[in-house]
Structures are given as C-alpha cells and as structure tokens.
Amino acid sequence: METQEKANSVYINRLSAVMPNEPVSNAEMENVLGQVGGQRSRAKSIILRSNQIKSRHYGIDPETGEYNYTNASLAAEAVEKLIPQISELASVDTLVASTSIPDQTLPNHGVMVHGELKNPPLEVVSTSGVCLCGITALKYAYMAIKSGESQKSVVVASELASNVMHASNFNAECEHKVAQLESKPEIAFEKDFLRWMLSDGAGAALLSNEPSPEGLSLRVDWIDVLSFANELEACMYAGCEKQDGEIVGNARFSSNERAEQSIASVKQDVKLLNENIIKTTVERTLANSVKKRGLNADDYDYFVPHYSSGYFREKVFEGLQNINFEIPYDKWFTNLTTKGNTGSASIFIMLEELFNKGNLTKGEKLLCYIPESGRFSSAFMQLTVV
C-alpha cells in the first residue's frame, strides 16, 4: 500500500516593508491630502485623538504634491527589497498580490505588479477585499507550498489609500452641495472619517518549504479565516452606495452622480462597526479556532493584532477576556502609531518590524489577528519562530 507523503511545512523566510516618502505628522495631513471645498475638516482632530496615530506615509511627493508611486510600483518596491538579487527573484514560482483599491479595475493588480518586476513568467494570483485580503493572499501561498504546488512564493500586500482620500475626489460633491444652496457643504462623516484613518504602505513575505539556512524563520502553523456576510450587511465599502442596507454598485449611477456623490470614496458605517467588530471578529472567530485547534492563551509569547484605531485596543482586550483567552498587554506588538493603518499591508508591516528588530527567539509562538469590517470577516494565524 502506498503511503501518503507528509504535507510540507511552510516557512516565512524573509519580510520587507516599504513606507513611501517621509512620515507625515497629524499637523501636516491636510496639507498633503488637501482641504475639501477649501475648508478644514471639523472631524479630523476628534478622529486623530481617538485613533492615536501620530504619523503615517503617503505616496505623494511632499515638494510637488504629485503622486510619485502607483499601487503596483509600491508593491514591486517591497518585493525588490525582499529579494534584491535578480537571479533569486527568477527562482520564485508564485506571486500573490493583494490590495483593497488597485490602480485600475482591469487587468488585475497581481499581473500589474509582475509587469513592474519583469521577473520571468510564473503563477500570479490576486486577492481583493479590505484588510483581510493580505492574509488571504498569504493563505494561498501557504496552501500552494503545503500541497507541493510551489517551492518558493512571494506574497505582497500594498495600499495607496491616498488615491481615494485626496481632496480632489470630493470637490465635485462639495460644489454640487453649494449648487443646492446647502449652508455647510461638508462631506458626510462616513467619508471624512476614513480620510484621517487610512494611509499608504506595502509589505512582502518570502515563503518556502524549508527554513532559512541562516538566522530565523517563522513557521506558518495554521491560518483560520471566517466570513460573517451571511448575517451582517456591508460596513466598509467603496465604488458603491448603501441604500436601505443594500449595496448599489457604481455601474448603477450616471457619471454625474458618481462625481456628485463621491461614489468612488471609501465609506464606513461607524455605528454598525462599533456594534459588531469585536463580537464577530475577535470573540466568535477566535472561539472557533480555540475549539478547532485546542488553543491556550498562555502558549503565546506575542500577540500581533491589526486594529484600525487605538480606540479599539481596550475593546480587543475585553473581547479576549470575554472568551477566557486573555493575553496581557506586555505581549502585544503593534506599530499603528508610527506606521498608520495600511489596511491589508498592516500585518506584513508589523511582522517585518518585529521579525527584523531582532527580539524573536527560537520556539516562541505568535498569534496574529486580522479583521476587516467590509462585511465582517476575520482571520487568526499562528506562527512559530524556528
């Protein structure tokens, strides 16, 4: 009788991150992103006080005010930083790229990144979504290596959120409101809210079926992903509007309506977010993994949570407590305050700093948490330092 070959182990051998241009302070944000209708945002200071982000990066040249990155070029730079040798890049057999808002609708983002890199033909896959698409990209590469279909995969997640947060995207809406004789033609809170929450960046990981011959690697033990879209309506959305809880897509609006309502902008239902984000993405998702895998909170040396705002830090902790899986704050690692919320790239940007700063030691276990409020999905991932 033939014996089934044992599935491959999967290792993250290297991590890289690219933060475009110099850090932008809270005081400088509106100078870079612009003022909508020539008015300063009244929500900005409240949102920044809540999210506790002190600096972030944008793919906008601070001298000229023009973009000096595309989403694809930002992703490609992260891959080139990950694998600077052209000969080694040529040995990669799978490229998985993710982003929430690509530079274009078609072709897909992954092949645009491949076009920037100009490495030899290989399998290219794109994943889309909001924050979760970075980890689904990683899971594709993980499964490809585990199944033996790939020996060396590169995963890259990138966001150029400033593309849809720049004031120029909202001027038509503002002018339309002036034409309607509204006394305060400000953009709606659900749009203005995210202008001060999101930022640009890219992170990449090299995965293989062997640990690095020198130095440390991170073994990917498992990745669990759950969607709750069967129960909850869309919370964070772009290229559409939400009417009576239902999404109405961009194609259902005229070109004038798309401009006058800033249809392309990223929007968030803040009330829906606050009511559901912890209960679904922390408590229910992690409880599922605990039951499925027999997890114990004391086994983890690091907790690496992606949360969009410092406002949620204590709420995540309370969610862990609610399912008897408390991980003390001294085991948490985040760089939200200095790198900002880079969406799908955030988990890679956090892991890159933690991995490359030299604090990890063999045998330590990391639990990573990646939620998204798009229509409420969540992921947990376990890594072991080897």
Rank of each mutant, 00 (worst) to 15 (best):
E2L: 12
Y11G: 00
L15C: 07
V18G: 03
V32M: 07
L33W: 10
K44H: 08
R56N: 06
Y58N: 06
P62A: 02
P62V: 07
G65A: 06
Y67Q: 06
Y69K: 10
S73K: 01
A76G: 10
K81R: 15
Q85D: 15
S87G: 03
E88F: 02
L95F: 03
G110S: 07
V113Y: 07
G115K: 05
L117P: 01
N119L: 08
P120I: 06
V124K: 01
A137C: 06
Y140N: 06
K146D: 02
S162I: 04
N169Y: 03
N171V: 13
C174D: 00
K177P: 01
Q180D: 12
S183N: 14
P185D: 04
I187G: 02
F189C: 02
D192T: 02
R195N: 06
D200V: 05
G203F: 03
E210T: 10
L216S: 09
V220E: 05
F228T: 04
A229Q: 10
A229C: 14
E231A: 11
E233I: 06
E233W: 10
M236C: 15
Y237S: 05
E241V: 01
Q243H: 13
G245H: 10
G245Y: 09
A251V: 12
S255W: 11
S255M: 14
E257R: 10
E260T: 12
I263F: 00
A264N: 13
S265A: 15
N274R: 14
N276W: 01
N276D: 09
K279Y: 07
V282I: 13
N288L: 09
A297F: 12
V304S: 00
H306S: 01
S308R: 01
S309M: 09
G310D: 05
G310S: 05
N322L: 07
N324V: 06
I327Q: 02
P328F: 09
Y329C: 02
F333K: 12
L336H: 14
L351R: 02
T361H: 15
E364T: 04
K365Q: 14
L366D: 08
P371H: 04
M381H: 05
L383N: 01
